[in-house]
């Protein structure tokens, strides 16, 4: 049921039509100057990177167990059952823990605004909910960006690697990274070439904090009882003595 985007860098021609379609769908400006920008930002949710004759896209990976959703103190981020990770700006307090915590450093901030929001690709959640593909997949002229069922796309990617006769790096980026993502990448050059870390945790990052957080109720209860007990042991004699108006040792 979960949808995904498969981006095959070997099919990409670097036309940047996906950048333009993304900007249009999200109501962002797009012109030659913005097309030349090579960094994701609050006005550019996806970029096509070029190195020699190789290309690579960057966009929100829309993680299966998103770190941003787990760290957000107000729950502004949600993982849609269909795949997209969405953001509700009306909840946001602007702590920027999502920027800090995202393993792919995807969320961007509106630094120049006085009432800023976090900005990122939301895998065209509105379109996907209506049964349409993402705008980047729809416009892609070569099929480099393909939209479909996650399981189908993983099977297809495996098939392409197997039949590629060594054309591809033998790795589908996004199947295991941080517990899996809804964006899958195929490449003919090492993923590090374009800044994708491959030594990244295979475990979903929210586990790293939930292991601690789930112990909190136990710690609180234990601490209250222990501290109360210490107070009782250390002060009880005096309380009794004060109440009864005589010194404690008489009873001992």
């Amino acid at each position: 049921m979960s949808k995904s985007i498969l981006y095959d860098a070997t099919l990409c021609i670097g036309c940047k039509a996906c950048e333009g379609a993304c900007a249009e769908h999200h109501g962002l400006p797009y012109n030659d100057a913005i097309a030349a920008e090579t960094k994701q930002s609050d006005h550019k949710y996806t970029v096509v990177l070029t190195k020699d004759d190789k290309f690579m896209r960057r966009l929100c990976m829309n993680c299966q167990d998103p770190t941003c959703a787990s760290v957000c103190p107000v729950g502004a981020f949600r993982k849609n059952a269909l795949g997209p990770v969405t953001y509700d700006g009306s909840k946001c307090i602007g702590c920027r823990y999502c920027l800090q915590a995202c393993p792919f450093s995807v969320p961007k901030y509106e630094w120049s605004k006085t009432w800023p929001l976090v900005r990122k690709c939301d895998m065209c959640a509105d379109r996907v909910t209506n049964g349409q593909p993402t705008s980047c997949a729809e416009i892609c002229p070569t099929g480099a960006t393909k939209f479909g069922e996650r399981d189908d796309l993983i099977a297809e990617a495996k098939d392409r690697i197997a039949k590629g006769e060594g054309k591809y790096v033998n790795h589908i980026y996004g199947v295991e990274e941080v517990g899996g993502t809804s964006v899958l990448l195929l490449s003919s050059v090492p993923f590090e070439t374009f800044g994708y870390k491959t030594d990244i945790s295979k475990e979903a990052l929210p586990m790293y904090t939930s292991r601690v957080l789930e112990k909190l109720p136990d710690v609180v209860l234990l601490a209250v009882v222990s501290l109360g007990g210490i107070w009782w042991l250390r002060n009880r004699k005096e309380e009794v003595a004060a109440a009864e108006g005589h010194a404690v040792p008489n009873k001992a």
Binding site: S70, C72, P73, V74, I93, L213
Partner: peptide
Amino acid sequence: HPLVMWNPRSVMFEVA
């Protein structure tokens, strides 16, 4: 907001 919009999975929520 964290006082009324809860996300107990978040350390920042605990901090708030």
